[in-house]
Design a protein around this nucleic acid. Sequence first.
DNA 1: AGGCGCACCTAACACCGTTAGATTACTTCA
DNA 2: TGAAGTAATCTAACGGTGTTAGGTGCGCCT
Lengths: 220, 220
Amino acid sequence: MSRTSENKTPSLSRVRREREKAATRQRILEAARELFTTEGYAQTSMRRIADQIGYTATAIYHHFKDKDALLNELCLMDFRALFEALRQMDQIPDPITRLRLMGQNYVKFALAHPQQFRFMFLVERPIPGPDQITIDPAEDGYAFLLNNLSEAIELGLFRPEFKDPELLAQIVWSGVHGLAAIHLTAPGKSHPWMELRDPDETARQLSDVVLRGLLREPTT
Amino acid sequence: MSRTSENKTPSLSRVRREREKAATRQRILEAARELFTTEGYAQTSMRRIADQIGYTATAIYHHFKDKDALLNELCLMDFRALFEALRQMDQIPDPITRLRLMGQNYVKFALAHPQQFRFMFLVERPIPGPDQITIDPAEDGYAFLLNNLSEAIELGLFRPEFKDPELLAQIVWSGVHGLAAIHLTAPGKSHPWMELRDPDETARQLSDVVLRGLLREPTT
DNA sequence: AGGCGCACCTAACACCGTTAGATTACTTCA
DNA sequence: TGAAGTAATCTAACGGTGTTAGGTGCGCCT
C-alpha cells in the first residue's frame, strides 16, 4: 500500500533545493572551466576543482559521473555557443558573403576561446559516449553550413562539378578549421621558425581563396 | 699533472657499451610508440612501457628526462618522416602540380599515421622546451613549402595580390591540415550527423579549389 | 687486483581518479 | 513536536600514477 501518494506537491522547498542543486552544479562547472583553461585538463585534479568552491572532491561525483563528464558538459556548452555565433550570420542575404563571414567568425571564435576549441575538436576523448545520444549540438551548426551551401548550389553560383553539399562543407570547413588549429597548437611558437600572420587577415584571405576556387564566375 | 691523458682510445668495448645503450634507448622508444598509439598517451604508464621490455620504470629515466621527453622524441622522428615524404615531391618539375601533390600526400600521411599526427600537432604539450633548440625538424618541411610558393610567385603564376610566401604557406597548409584534423578527431564519428567523404578524394578537390583560388589564369 | 662508473634495481613520496560508508542537514508526514 | 527519510556532503581508503633517492652488481680501466 501507501503508493507514496504520487508526490503532487511542488512543496515550495523542494523546488528551492533543486534550484540550489543546479546552482552548485553550475559553480562546479565554472570552477572546472576556469582550471581546465588555465592549467589544462590533465593537470587539473578533482580535488583542486572542489577546493576552489569549498567542497570535497567526492562531492562532485554527486553531480557528475566522472571527470570526463565535466569535460563533455563544457564541450556541449561551447558547441552551442559557437554555432549560435555562426547562426547570427543568417540575416545576411547574399549566401556567398554569408559563407565568407561564417568562415572568418569561426576562426575568430576559435582564437577567442582557445581552450574550449581545443576541448571541442582537438582533445582525444575516450568515447563519444552513447549516453549523450540526445540532439547532437553540432548537428545544428553543420546543418546550417549545409543549408547555405545547398542554397548557393541551387542558385548556380558554384562551378558545375560541385554538386555535393556534404563534400563542399568538408572542404570549406577544413580551411578555417586548419587555420584555427595551426594558431592554437602552432609548433615553434617559442622558437619561431614560422612567422604566423595575423589570423583575422589570414582567415579573410583564406575564405576569399576557397570561395573563388568554388565559384563559377571569377570574381575581382 | 696527469692531465687525464686526453683519453684517445675508443677502447673497443666502450663503443660496444654505447651501442648497447643506444639499442635499449631505441627499444624504449619502440615500446612507448606501440603503447602510445594503441592506448593513448595519458593512458600509458611508465611502468607498462618498462614491463613491455623487461625493465623497471625508473630505468627509463636513465635514458630520458621524463615522460614528455619520450613523446617529444617520437614527435621529432615523425616530423622527419612526414617532411621526408613531402620532399620526395621535389623532382616534379611543375611547381603547381608539385604543390597539389604535396597537399594530397600531407593528408595521406596524416591518416596513415593518425596517432603520430596527433602527437605532432594536436596534443597540448606543456612547453616546447628550450633544450631542444637544435635544428628545428619542422623547419625543413615548412621551408620546402615556402620555396615552392616563392618559385610559383616568381613565375607569376599567382594573382598579383599574393606576394607573401609566408601568408600563402599558411593558407594552403590550413586547408590540408584542417582536413586531416577533421578526419582524425571527427566529432560524431559514432552517431554520424556528418557523412565524411573519402579523404583522398576530398584532399584532391580541396587542393584544386585552393590552387584555383590562388592562380592568375583560371584553369579548366 | 682494485677502484670506478654505468645501468639497473628497490623503496618511497606525493598525488591522482574513484568508491564505500558514515554523517549531517533538511523536508515530510503523523 | 518528533520520527522517518532522503539528499548533499564528508572521511577514509584503494589502486594507480610520475618521479626521486639511494643502493647493488657487473664490466671496464689502470
